[in-house]
Design a protein around this nucleic acid. Structure first.
Lengths: 146, 146
DNA sequence: CTTGAACCTCTAGCGACTAGAGAACCTATG
DNA sequence: CATAGGTTCTCTAGTCGCTAGAGGTTCAAG
């Protein structure tokens, strides 16, 4: 049994984040000391490590929730977990593609800049009119997320 | 002079987003009709297109603000704009690297899954203990942003 | 003159935390 | 046993870049 601080040190998850995970239902409410401080057991360490690892791999919290549910039920088919991971892989690949397009555009912009004054600055010019683009980057691309 | 709807259509920026940009000071307060509706001129179209393009390239709004300031001052050195773009390029490259590591990890996870029951599921297993990782993905990687 | 689309302001919500205030607790030392 | 200071508690608000909705006004067409 350990306090939230030790759990944080053991898993690398910050203390407020642990409390946040409890708040949103990813971690069960732990036992408490007489003084109302949280006390965690070994299972909590495991569960939190699982969450952390899934987050490191970019899974959104909802997916983590699903994966936790699956992990709690060892007799079910693994197909569901597979599907979630596969979905995440697609997400990551899509994001990589979009970022590659951005990188190309940024590099071309910078390559062509003679670095004189703003009035002849390629960076500003390219941003000002879309005509200079090679169409590499997608308009309205959803760049958000992890 | 056009209404906010036309400006939206002309630039591809949604109406609430235009109002949001005005609110945070990226767009100046436009003229108004007698009935209090916003009226935009050609310069507004240009400025908003500039913003949109920079956003498409992943620049955060603060960087867009800086770039707009530079664009307004054609006699200054282009070096500052260059630096901002270069910083953004580094950001994008870093993000690509992190995502590549994630992709590798996800792919390996999926390759090794025999797809039986959860108890032998490679996906769940890998998430449960970090021991299976090849160290490809960085712990605590900041995955957020665009 | 009426309809209905487009506009107005204002507030709240998204994801996944992070920061800070102000109070209570817990442990180690004098 | 008292006290100092580190850790923990709850609660609220802020981050980024929008997006959604409520409830009301204005404008152009028929």
């Amino acid at each position: 049994m350990q306090t939230i601080g030790k759990l944080s040190a053991a898993t690398g998850v910050k203390v407020p984040t642990i409390r946040y995970y409890e708040q949103v239902g990813l971690l069960p409410q732990p036992a408490r000391t007489q003084g109302n401080q949280r006390l965690y057991d070994r299972r909590a360490v495991q569960r939190l490590s699982f969450i952390r690892h899934a987050r490191d791999l970019g899974f959104p919290l909802d997916a983590v929730r699903e994966l936790l549910g699956l992990a709690d039920d060892p007799d079910r088919s693994c197909a569901a977990a597979d599907a979630i991971a596969r979905r995440q892989l697609h997400e990551v690949n899509a994001r990589i593609q979009r970022l590659n397009a951005l990188r190309d555009e940024l590099e071309r912009m910078l390559r062509h800049c003679a670095c004189g004054t703003i009035s002849e600055c390629r960076v500003i010019e390219v941003l000002g009119s879309h005509a200079h683009c090679q169409g590499g980057h997608i308009e309205g691309a959803d760049l958000a997320g992890d």
